[in-house]
Design a protein around this nucleic acid. Structure first.
Length: 889
RNA sequence: GGGCGAAUAGCUCAGCUGGUUAGAGCGCCUGCCUUACACGCAGGAUGUCGGGGGUUCGAGUCCCUCUUCGCCCACCA
């Protein structure tokens, strides 16, 4: 471990080995009986077929930041990882593979298909886990669960059986969302609504008695073939006489009744609604109330079925739509077509337009589960960040609808329901273990063909991942968990349901804090997606710039509740902040470690009272960084935390402290030992504060610090506290003044184009006590850092000076350097004078405002008075300079 | 249709309980290969804080309103 560090940081060389070492040493393992308050995070389980994308990058980096922070703070930290068998998504992947071979799942048959999926998962299912490791995720991988493992499958059955026994699971015929491509139902939450501009077609239906007619409006003309009634509002005067009459449904030979139903809005369209109970949830309810027939006019693939006139049979629904409209028009019954935009449901997995369809399905009765979940929120047991997301959660629960959990898929947990086949028995058996025969009549039983919604296993993971229903030590120690970190888009699909299942089966909410982060978008603010091709591959970024650079960029670009925008066109630029910072850090490390070969004394052994200003100052800055960064991490303001540490390490440590101690380290001068001790100490603090964000480089550098215990990891080292660095307000004030003095001289040099190599003489006037003290004690620092050969305390202002506000008053700083051109200098001074006079006038006005003086806090007024003094001095200096130069008035 | 979020430098964003001259990174300009780092150092420019109105001694910050983007929810067919 003593090879010299290269000038350029090459992350690829260190990240892999470090991760392997972390794993071997088991730093991320959480034992139920380990000391410390438990801190538990459930990782949103990625789909087994998934490859890491930026969404994971954002989500898992955020979790890892928090987990590493809490682990270092001494909590018994557990991050539970897992993968999701992802019913529809995974089945689709395999079906696509089959399609390439010219096959469908039906060609293989159910068992062979499931075997094929299993083989695929066995082969590729671990990829995403390896990618998460490349990202640096410090999960307890030994606990990695799989939602379709035998263990978790057993818990799914257990939960199904318990809910069924409690009367919370039922089977029924309702209108459900049907994806004609996936050939399965979807829950309401799995349907994504999209605004589409379309048409509202008005059809005239003649009454059966031949006299009158009635106009109906529809957005789905093809469903008219399944109309079994017409509904009007019972109080609508236009249709009062029509209720009860029959309509001759065009294109068919059916006669359907006109019914009165208050679900109809008289103000919309014509005020009359065609009722298609098999294809619309509202129509279904109307149909039920009025005993209308249901005619399913479509096949599962959304083609027109045998129930419609022959000319339309077999047509795709969209084609049928066109032809029905044409046929109606040919009959002279098309009244008008209005443009109309409305929300159309799409399958969340394949984006096909979802068809509402009457079907026999299994449901979970949600109201009894929602009630305690809502109560927990109102009782303050759930904290949402950002806060407003709590309202989103509550609104959904208040308007909860039953959950359709059966899926017509082959990949997933088969529904644990068997039906007795004997005539006269027909019992429905719900069982935890597969029954061999009907317990009632010993008849032959067959299992329900359907599988469960994927989310029916993932809504249980906060406790099933810990061994439930067994009361394992892990379950006892780590339930309930702490923080859930995820994207707002799965509040309903996952978060709310976990809360409900947690309350139902464990009696407690599964986590107390829900942190919802934004979405990763491209430069045009579009969501990253495969179809748009605007994605960034995090693995590519890690290979090129390192996981730390990726993580730093993610963290610093993300604030609470906002999206993360990444320019996908230019990765070099997009990840520059992280890359640059990692390199800077590496070089601070090279410098500091290079001077610590003989070791560093612990800070406790250093006489700080006797230490130079810079040492006391950097320790005070370290303390401020500790306090600030810790507060930011605690409040989920990770970008602010990152910025705080960045400023500490780059601006304070690198730009000032390192520059300041160089003479003490290079030259064999007294104080070198103190400088080494302090440098080692503040670098240790900086690395620790940064470790949650940039775990690899901080580990690599930290382990090389002389005072880091051998074979220890920064990831389990103690988080710095206020005790780690002494406060020193005087040092902050004095060093700040020193920085201001050096800064003022640098500005003068640059303004006057003094060549960088050339030293200058500086004249101070109006010296304050602080300035005098600094010049006499730290004059050498000023000389070195501002390239000054001599400092004069002139008492009179010189050419080309500037006024500087020190804490104890304004002083004048000037260069003893001939101004190039008196005329130019006069012009420059005139501009500056004008500006200063303006500011002075404004300041005088402000302080003349009686209201302000009466009401503003005293400290503020004091500051305003100080500023007035500076401005007055500035104006005076500029005037004197102009006089000295003989400038024209 | 209802609800929510956002609008600050060319770009991405900070600015938390109203209070100095509104900040950072990237990009840009000037000068530097100063023995940790040119992925760097020093200096610099750039903002009617989306528009309008209000509250206040004082508003980027609070209130109202409008505009523009984005998100979520919803059974007006």
């Amino acid at each position: 471990m003593t090879e010299p560090l290269a000038p350029q940081y090459t992350p690829a060389a260190i990240e892999g080995p470090l991760y392997s070492w972390w794993q071997e040493r088991g730093f991320f393992r959480a034992a139920p009986d380990a000391p410390g308050e438990p801190y538990v995070v459930q990782m949103p389980p990625p789909n087994v077929t998934a490859r890491l994308h930026m969404g994971h990058g954002l989500n898992d980096t955020t979790q890892d930041v928090l987990v590493r922070f809490e682990r270092m703070r001494g909590k018994n930290t557990l991050w539970v990882p897992g993968t999701d068998h992802a019913g529809i998504a995974t089945q689709n992947v395999i079906e696509k593979q089959l399609a390439k071979e010219g096959l469908t799942r039906f060609d293989l048959g159910r068992d062979a298909f499931v075997d094929r999926v299993k083989a695929f998962v066995a082969e590729t299912g671990g990829e995403i886990i390896e990618q998460l490791k490349a990202l640096g995720c410090s999960a307890d991988w030994e606990r990695t669960y799989y939602t379709f493992s035998p263990d978790l499958s057993a818990t799914v059955r257990e939960v199904f059986a318990r809910l069924y026994e409690k009367g919370l699971i039922y089977r029924g015929k309702y209108i459900v969302n049907w994806c004609p491509r996936c050939l399965t139902t979807l829950s309401n939450e799995e349907v994504e609504k999209e605004e589409k501009s379309s048409s509202l077609w008005h059809f005239r239906y003649p009454l059966a008695d031949g006299g009158d007619s009635i106009v109906v409006a529809t957005t789905r003309p093809e469903t008219m073939l399944g109309d079994t009634g017409i509904a009007v509002h019972p109080d609508d005067p236009r249709y009062q006489g029509m209720i009860g009459k029959m309509v001759a449904l065009p294109l068919t030979d059916r006669e359907i009744p006109i019914v009165g139903d208050s679900a109809v809005d008289p103000a919309f369209g014509s005020g009359a609604v065609k009722v298609t109970p098999a294809h619309d949830p509202v129509d279904f309810e109307i149909g039920r109330r009025h005993n209308l027939m249901t005619i399913d006019v479509m096949t599962p693939e959304a083609r027109m079925s045998q129930t419609v006139p022959e000319r339309f049979q077999g047509l795709d629904r969209m084609e049928a739509r066109k032809q029905v409209v044409a046929a109606i028009q040919a009959l002279g019954l098309l009244v008008k077509v209005d443009p109309h935009t409305h929300a159309v449901g799409h399958c969340y997995r394949c984006n096909t337009v979802v068809e509402p369809r009457l079907s026999d399905q299994w449901f979970v009765k949600m109201a009894p589960l929602a009630k305690p979940a809502l109560q927990a929120y109102h009782d303050g047991k759930l904290r949402f960040i950002p806060e407003f997301q709590g309202g989103v959660y509550a609104y959904w629960l208040e308007n909860i609808r039953d959950w359709c959990i059966s899926r017509q898929l082959w990949w997933g947990h088969r529904i644990p329901v068997w039906y007795c086949q004997s005539e006269g028995c027909r019992k429905t058996i719900v069982a935890r273990e597969e029954p061999t025969h009907c317990p009632e009549c010993r008849g032959h039983v067959i299992q329900d063909e359907d599988v469960l919604d994927t989310w029916f296993s993932s809504w249980l993971v906060p406790f099933t991942s810990l061994g439930w229903p067994e009361k394992t030590p892990s379950l006892r120690a780590f339930y309930p968990g702490s923080t859930l970190i995820t994207a707002p888009e799965i509040i309903y699909l996952w978060v709310a349901r976990m809360i409900m299942s947690g309350l139902e089966f464990m009696g407690e909410v599964p986590f107390d804090t829900i942190y919802l982060h934004g979405t990763v978008r491209d430069a045009q603010h579009r969501k990253m997606s495969k179809s748009l091709g605007n994605g960034v591959d995090p693995i590519e970024v890690i290979d090129r710039y390192g996981a730390d650079a990726l993580r730093y960029t993610i963290v610093s670009g993300m604030s609470v509740g906002t999206d993360l925008i990444l320019d996908t066109a230019d990765l070099d630029t997009a990840f520059a902040p992280g890359r640059f910072f990692a390199n800077k850090l590496w070089n601070i490390g090279r410098f500091v470690l290079g001077h610590l070969e003989q070791g560093a004394r612990p800070l406790a052994e250093v006489d700080l009272a006797a230490a130079p200003l810079a040492d006391r100052w950097i320790l005070a800055r370290a303390r401020a960084a500790i306090v600030e960064a810790t507060a930011h991490y605690e409040r989920f303001r990770f970008n602010e935390a990152a910025m705080t540490v960045y400023r500490f390490l780059w601006s304070d440590v690198a730009d000032w402290y390192v520059e300041q101690i160089k003479p003490r380290l290079y030259g064999n001068v007294p104080g070198g030992e103190t400088a080494r001790a302090v440098a080692a100490h503040v670098f240790d603090i900086g690395l620790k504060l940064l470790h949650p964000v940039m775990p690899f480089i901080t580990e690599e550098l930290w382990r090389r610090l002389p005072n880091s215990p051998a074979d220890a990891s920064i990831s389990v080292s103690a988080w710095p506290t206020e005790e780690s660095a002494p406060a020193d307000d005087l040092a902050l004030l004095e060093f700040g003044a020193l920085q201001d003095l050096i800064g003022a001289i640098r500005v003068l040099r640059a303004d006057q184009r003094v060549p960088p190599g050339q030293t200058v003489e500086v004249a101070f006037a109006n010296m304050t006590a602080l300035a005098r003290a600094l010049v006499s004690r730290d004059g050498d620092t000023i000389q070195r850092l501002a390239k000054v050969s001599a400092i004069h305390d002139d008492g009179t202002p010189d050419l080309a000076g500037t006024t500087l506000a020190l804490p104890d008053g304004p002083i004048v700083v000037a260069l003893r350097h001939a101004a190039a051109d008196p005329a130019k200098e006069c012009a420059r001074l005139a501009t500056e004078l004008a500006r200063s006079e303006q500011l002075l006038a404004a300041q005088l006005g402000k302080l003349a405002n009686e209201q302000f003086v009466a009401r503003a806090p005293a400290a503020l007024i004091e500051k305003e008075r100080e500023r007035l003094a500076v401005l007055e001095s500035q104006v005076e200096t500029l005037r004197e300079q102009r006089r000295a130069l003989g400038c024209p008035a």
